[in-house]
Each structure stands twice: as structure tokens, then as C-alpha cells.
């Protein structure tokens, strides 16, 4: 098991956001976590990535409990998060965003990874010296994924990469995620766009107000009447 979350509780001050969530991600898989607004999807991902500390529970990553570890030391272990809303550094150029994402890498590895990002997203190479602020939403999402490709390698967490993108761009991004996965990166995908997410992922979990209420292979979830009603528009 690459990642195993065990009975994780997270709160913001006195507000409890995640109430004892458990799930697993195996090496090489694409797993999705779907749920409505406020279900606790972002909280879950941000806690795994080390931006938040869980109140209790374990986050076992590559056999090590990383709960409460700082985000920058988790990055060192090959995990990367594409955060909700992309969070591109608008005052840095495309290249500088990628360069910064490889903060801990030696220059040979860094250059190799940036080269790979430019191969996957030729559009980013064309806009190499353009400021992040001036990119279109789709380009920003490409840059956000590109940054995670530079940082990570083993496990990529994505928080609603389809948000605010036209369907054709969503298709494109998901196609690339499939490719990245085929090349060896395990993916944990959080989405409100359940249809797309269940098509891409082999397995999924449904999160509702901080609890996992359903789990199973994507096809089964897609057939489930409750899931259909709540997340697939009937």
C-alpha cells in the first residue's frame, strides 16, 4: 500500500471538518474521492500533504506515519499536491514556477523534469517567460499539474483540476493524467465532477460531511442509485 489513511480526524479550531476517514491508495492506482461542497475533500488532501495537522489518526505513506509532518518534508518523500484553485504564483514566470517547484532537486534532475513537463504541455514552453497571472485558466491548470510533476514523482494529489475549465480542456487534462499514471505516478483525485472522475479512476470513495459513506470500484459506484442521484444528475 502506497498511502493508507487510518481514522483521520481534522478540525479548524472548534469546527470539525473530517470525522474519522479511512481509505487506501495502492501503488500505480488512480483513486478518486468524490463529494459535494463542504464534504471535506480539500481538508483531507491538505492534511495528507502536510498543510494541516490531523487531530488524530494515522497517514501511512510508504510505510511511514507522516501525520503532522511539515509539508516541505513530505514533498521530499515524493508526494505532490495540486491545490484547489491552482495557486499559481502570478508574479513569477512559467519557468520560475516550475523552477521553484523543484526547490529540493539537484539541477540535473530539475532540468530533466522541466523538460518532461514541456514535452507533455508544449503550450507551457511557448509561454515560458510569461507571468503566471497572464495565463488563461486552462494554462494555469497545466502549470499547476506541471509543477506537481516537477516536485513529485510517486504520488500526485489533485484537488478539483476540472474546476472552471471548459469540457474540452477537462478532457485534455484527464487524458494527460491517464498518461502520467501510465508512466508510473499514482494518483489520488478529488472531484465534484463525478462522471469524469469515475471514468478515469479504477476505484472511488464517496465523502459526505466528513465521513466516507460509500466505497468501491468506479463502475459499481457509477451504477449506485444514490450516487447517480446525488452526483451524476439522476
Amino acid at each position: 500500500m502506497l498511502l493508507s489513511v487510518r481514522d483521520m480526524h481534522v478540525s479548524y479550531g472548534s469546527i470539525k471538518a473530517v470525522h474519522g476517514v479511512s481509505f487506501d491508495v495502492d501503488e500505480g492506482e488512480i483513486v478518486t474521492l468524490i463529494g459535494a461542497n463542504g464534504a471535506g475533500k480539500s481538508t483531507t488532501l491538505n492534511t495528507i500533504a502536510g498543510l494541516l495537522s490531523p487531530d488524530s489518526g494515522e497517514i501511512i505513506y510508504q510505510g511511514e506515519n507522516i501525520a503532522g509532518m511539515s509539508a516541505h518534508s513530505i514533498v521530499k518523500r515524493g508526494m505532490a499536491l495540486v491545490p484547489e484553485g491552482r495557486r499559481i504564483f502570478g508574479n513569477l514566470t512559467v519557468y520560475e514556477n516550475l523552477r521553484l517547484a523543484g526547490f529540493q532537486l539537484d539541477s540535473a534532475t530539475l532540468n530533466k523534469r522541466i523538460k518532461r513537463v514541456f514535452e507533455i504541455f508544449p503550450r507551457l514552453e511557448e509561454r515560458r517567460d510569461q507571468l503566471g497571472d497572464t495565463l488563461s485558466g486552462g494554462e494555469q491548470q497545466m502549470l499547476a499539474v506541471g509543477r506537481a510533476l516537477v516536485t513529485g514523482g510517486k504520488l500526485m494529489l489533485l484537488d478539483e483540476p476540472s474546476m472552471g475549465l471548459a469540457p474540452i480542456l477537462v478532457q485534455q487534462i484527464f487524458e494527460i493524467l491517464r498518461e502520467i499514471n501510465a508512466q508510473g505516478t499514482t494518483i489520488l483525485l478529488v472531484e465534484q465532477n463525478a462522471r469524469m472522475a469515475l471514468q478515469l479512476a479504477a476505484r472511488g470513495y464517496v465523502l459526505e460531511t466528513g465521513n466516507i459513506v460509500l466505497a468501491g470500484p468506479s463502475q459499481e459506484l457509477a451504477q449506485n442509485p444514490e450516487v447517480q442521484k446525488a452526483y451524476l444528475g439522476g
Binding site: 499536491l81 491545490p83 504564483f89
Partner: peptide
Amino acid sequence: TKWGMAMRAISYDKFAVPLMGVSQ
């Protein structure tokens, strides 16, 4: 330098900086 980039990045958006592997 990458340290300078990190300084500029923090002044734009603190949230995402640790995700780049940078210790704030």
C-alpha cells in the same frame, strides 16, 4: 536564485509555498 524566487512567491501566496518543498 531559487531562494529569491521563494521570497517572491511567499509575498504573492504563502499557502502554496510549502507544497514546492520550501521551508517557509
